[in-house]
Design a protein around this nucleic acid. Sequence first.
RNA 1: GCCGACGUGGCUCAGUUGGCAGAGCAGCGCACUCGUAAUGCGCAGGUCAUCGGUUCGACUCCGAUCGUCGGCUCCA
Length: 645
Amino acid sequence: MIRISFPDNSSREISKGTTGRDVALSISKGLAKKALAFELDGELFDLSCEIPHGGSIRVITADDEESVDIVRHSTAHLMAAAVLELYPETKFGIGPTIENGFYYDMFIPGFNGEKDIAAVRSRMKRLVKKNISFERAEMPYSQAVESFSSHDERFKMELLDEIEDRGETISLYTLGDFTDLCRGPHVPSTRFLSNFELLSVAGAYWRGSEENEMLTRIYGTAFHSREDLQSHLNLLEEAKKRDHRKLGVELELFSSKGMGGPGFVYWLPKGTIVKESLENLWKDAHRYMGYQLVSTPHIAPVELWKTSGHLDYYRDNMYFTEVENGEYALKPMNCPGHIIIYRNSKRSYKELPMRIAELGTVYRYERSGAIHGLMRVRGFTVDDGHIFCTSDQIISEIQDVVRFALYFLKIFNFGYQIELSLMDPADPEHYAGDPADWARVEPLLAKALDDMGEDYKTVTGEAAFYGPKIDIKLRDALGRYWQGPTVQFDFNIPGRFDLKYIGADGAAHRVYMVHRALLGSVERFIGNLIEHFTGNFPGWLAPVQLVILPITSVQNDFAERVYKKAVDAGLRCELDNRSETIGYRIRESETGKVPHMFIVGEREAGSETVAVRRHGEGDIGTLPIDEAVQAVVDACARPALPERR
RNA sequence: GCCGACGUGGCUCAGUUGGCAGAGCAGCGCACUCGUAAUGCGCAGGUCAUCGGUUCGACUCCGAUCGUCGGCUCCA
C-alpha cells in the first residue's frame, strides 16, 4: 500500500498497481472523463500509468495551465502519425511543443510543401474521429534500437544513443501505426485533440546545425477548446493586420525595395517625421539626463577595427572598401568612435562619469534570409551611448540607465521583462578580461536591479564575451516580446584601447565602460511602434496631426484661416479642399490614420467654430476655433522629459 | 547562406489546355459644391522581376539570376 495526498490535503492509501485513471474514477466519473494526465510530486505521468510511489497527487484536466502543452505535444504525435500514413517513407526528427504551439521536424520523401498540408490536416481529423489511444511502453536500449533500426529511423537512433548515455529510461509511445521515442506524458486518446490547426511549413536543419541535413518542419497549434483555438487564430490575423511592412506601405512611411538594395530603409517624408520626432525627444532627454551628444564618421580605417577586436570577432558582418592608401570599413558599431572621443584628452576622475551618446547609423551584413522589414536590416541607427566611470559609480549609473530605458517604454505603454545575463563560471576561457573584474561587477548589476525593486530573470552563460549585460524585452499590445533596451558591461575594449583616467591619487586607473542602447535600433523600434499602435501613432509622432476639411469650396477662405491658426500653433496640419465629397475626404483621413479633423461648413463659418472629429471616434462636437486648436495641441503634446535623480 | 512558396501597372488581384495582357483602387482631365468612412464620366499607365532555353508562337513550359514571404541559421 502507498499513501497519496490530494490538493485539498486529504489523503488515502491505495494498493500498488492503481493507475491515475483509477484514482480519478474514485473521485468522480466526470473527473475521469476530463482527466488528461496526473502529477505526482511535481512530475507528470500518463493517466494510464500506475502510481509509482506515494506522494502528493493532482489530476490534470483542461483547467490546469500545464495541460495545454500536453495537448500540443500529443497533437505533434498525431500529425506525425498522419504524415506517416500519407508518406510511409518518412523519417522522424523531433516534435516538441513551443510557445503557442508545436512543430515536428521530419524527412518526408514526396512531400510537396504547403500544397500537401490540407491532406495532412484531414488525415489528422480522421484519426481524431477514430479516438485512438496513446500506448506507452518502456524498454531496454537494445530492444528500442532494434525497433527503430528496422524502420531505418536514423534521427531517432541518434536520440536513443544520447538518452542511453544519460542513463534515462527509454519510453516509446504508440499511436495507431506510429511509434515514437518520447518522454511523455500524452493525453489518453485522440478525442482530446480535435482543436488544432496546421500553420506553416519550413525547412529546418536537423538539430539546428547547418552541417546537418535539412528536414521539413510543419508548425501547428492546438488548444483545449474551439474557442481558444479561434481566439489564437484571430490573434494571428490581428498581427497580420498590424504588420509594419504592410502599414509602412499604406501609410507611406518607408520603402525598402527596388534599387535601394535589400535590407536598406528609405524613409519617406511621413516616416521621417515619425523618426525625427522620436529622435528629437531622445536627444533632448539625453542632454537633460547628463549625456553629451557626439557625432562620428560612418567609415574608419581597418586599423581601428583591428584594435577594437571587431576584425577578429565581427569581420563576417562588416562591409569593406579599398581606397588608395588602405582599407576602410563601414562601422558596424559606434563604440570605437566614442572611444576615440574619450581618448581625445587625458581624463580626470572629476570628469567621470562621462556619458556620451549618438544616434549612430551602422552597417552590418546580414545574411539574405535574415532580413525582415524594419526589424532586421543591414543599415540602421543605434541610439548608442557609452558611459565611462569608476567602479563605485557603477550601481548608480546602471540604475540611471535602466530607469531611463523604462521611461522610453512607459511613454508608449510597452510592458517589459528584464534579463540579467551572466558569464558561465564553468567556462571562463570564453570571456575576455580579468575574472576578478567579472566577479566584482556581476553582483553590482544584480544589486542595482534589486535596489530598484525591479523583477528580473538571471540567465547564466548568456553574457557577451566582453561583459555581463542587462537586456530588457518589450511587450507590445499583442503580448509579443521584442528585443528592447540593453545595458552591457565591457571588460574588453578599455584594455584594448588602454582607456584610463587620472584618479585623486594622481595615478592612472583603468576606466570602466558601459555600452547602452535604450531603443536598440531606431528602425526596429519604429517597427515595434507601428505594430503596437496599428499605425495610430500618439499625436506627437503622427506625421499629420490635423486635417482641415471645408464641406464646399464656399468655406475655402474660412478653412484657410483655421489652417493658418493651426500651423501657427505648431501643428502638422493639412488643408484638404479638393473637389471631392466630404465623405470621401473624411474617409481618406481616416484610412490615413490622421488623429484629428476639423470639418467646416456653413454653420461653422458663420459662428467661428469647427466641428471636431477624432480618429476612430467620429464626430465629437463643435468648438470655437481657438479652443479646438488648443485641444489638438494638447493632444499632440510631447511626453514630459524623464525624472532626474 | 539553406529549405519551401511566391513575383502581372503606385496598391490589391484576375488571366481558362501556350494563340495580340484585364479589373478595382490610386493618378490625371472634366463635370458635380456635397454635413461626418468611397459622386459620375473620361484619359493615361504594364518589354507580365531579369536573363537564357524549348516552340511557328511563352505571362503561361524548362533553367539560371535577383527580390519578397514563412522558417532554419546568425545576432558584439
